[in-house]
Design a protein around this nucleic acid. Structure first.
Lengths: 234, 234
DNA sequence: TGAGGCCTGTGACAAAAGTCATCGGCAGGT
DNA sequence: ACCTGCCGATGACTTTTGTCACAGGCCTCA
């Protein structure tokens, strides 16, 4: 199937860590790539498993998360097309430090450890690109630690809403409109708490007039007012 | 001063990310290296500052930490000789994501961004080594997130004591002996809480017979018993 | 030697986080 | 149409965390 090959190359060219490669190099890599399809919620791999290679998101979204013995989850990152996953364990030889699952239906391209390491040795710029991507990842993790360590659930929720508004907020009648994650359970996992506290805090923010909810859609009438909330208890 | 040059080269050869370089390459790098001395508690750099290069610990120890507006601190890592610091911001061009200070009197070697990037391009293995080191760092951060998100102060404290026992515990009369960080304040920053809770929880562990304290030295009579504590509330 | 600084330990509280149980709504399947 | 399962909201309660205040020890420096 020649289609797979060319499609993969197109996808790869859009991936941050592979930008800058020539067309023939991309083609070479694409040949060694294995596309895998996942249905919503399906696991890609679990923490602790030995790492056999890295993945590139072709379509759909994935979530990287840790789970606790008691069933709680903490989301570390949600990534869409063009993102690479598990670049790091490929290098340090250890197991996957966290689990990854598909959020919606998704297609990932698998690149084996060997192929990728070889590529990095022959193309030093790739390694530098990886380092850049990993830098961003590290910053995000430090940000999560900072929030978990210093702030309250309310604060994290407000901050989450603002991030969402900034990334995908639409101007709507009376404010900025955003769409919450599918469930409060999921939102809770993303800000490091439990379902009930998300529910309560959302209600409270609404009661205070800082947000207006209607199902999963939320309108923020005044971004500044919500931001002020962050400063208050830092 | 010829001493500086050769000493630096000796130090550099012991640094994980530079292992594998030839002697002449190390010498070359050592020439471009600037040794800086810091007294206990002195800041090396603060989060948010633009990143001008990376540091290698020659002697002494440094702590990497975030601080909150209200004055609390969260330690991300404490590193000794042979560790490199801030490898990552060198690559992604951003500012330092956290602050670094000397724990005790320490000497660090400074390597400028330019020199280091050039080195990575001419020596691809260096970039791979950096990736390996960064992998370890990332794992540690994920571990911190996991603990902050899922566990209690008591749990984190027990886990901290066990880590310490494993790393530097000495067999002593009646158990394994370890030495706590200089102050409860510092210990609190390392496990993500406040001074008072550390004090209380240590007292409680002692009351329960899980540890015996005498000043800053702690004897753990039964490692298994303390480990059991971890499983209880995961 | 005495004042100030920094540390620990602790009681009293206040606030936040989390647990448990319940109710009602809304699907999806049989 | 009805059962079942998942989800959201919410009240009641417990546990954990964090804050404030204060007492006392130890050290240093003037």
């Amino acid at each position: 199937m020649p289609d797979t090959k060319t499609n993969s190359a197109v996808t790869l060219s859009k991936v941050a860590i592979f930008s800058g490669l020539t067309e023939s190099e991309l083609g070479f890599l694409a040949q060694r790539t294995v596309p895998r399809h996942y249905t919503a919620g399906e696991m890609v791999f679990s923490e602790g498993e030995p790492c056999s290679g890295l993945y590139v998101v072709d379509s759909g979204h994935i979530r990287i998360f840790k789970s606790s013995a008691s069933g709680r989850e903490q989301v570390l990152s949600v990534d869409g097309p063009g993102s690479s996953v598990a670049e790091l364990p490929v290098f340090d030889g250890g197991n996957y430090p966290a689990s990854v699952a598909a959020v919606d239906d998704a297609t990932l391209l698998f690149v084996s450890k060997q192929d990728f390491q070889a590529l990095c040795l022959t193309h030093p710029q790739v390694a530098l690109k990886v380092l850049r991507v990993v830098g961003a990842r590290l910053r995000r993790l430090v940000g999560i630690i900072e929030e978990l360590s210093f702030t309250t659930v309310r604060h994290r929720l407000a901050s989450f809403l603002l991030r969402l508004a900034q990334k995908e907020g639409k101007r709507a009648s009376g404010g900025t409109e955003i769409t919450l994650p599918a469930s409060n359970q999921e939102l809770a996992a993303q800000i490091g708490t439990v379902r009930e506290l998300v529910s309560r805090n959302l209600s409270r923010l609404q009661a205070e007039g800082l947000i207006q909810m209607e199902g999963r859609s939320v309108v923020i009438p005044n971004l500044k007012a919500l931001e002020a909330e962050l400063a208050s208890a830092e």
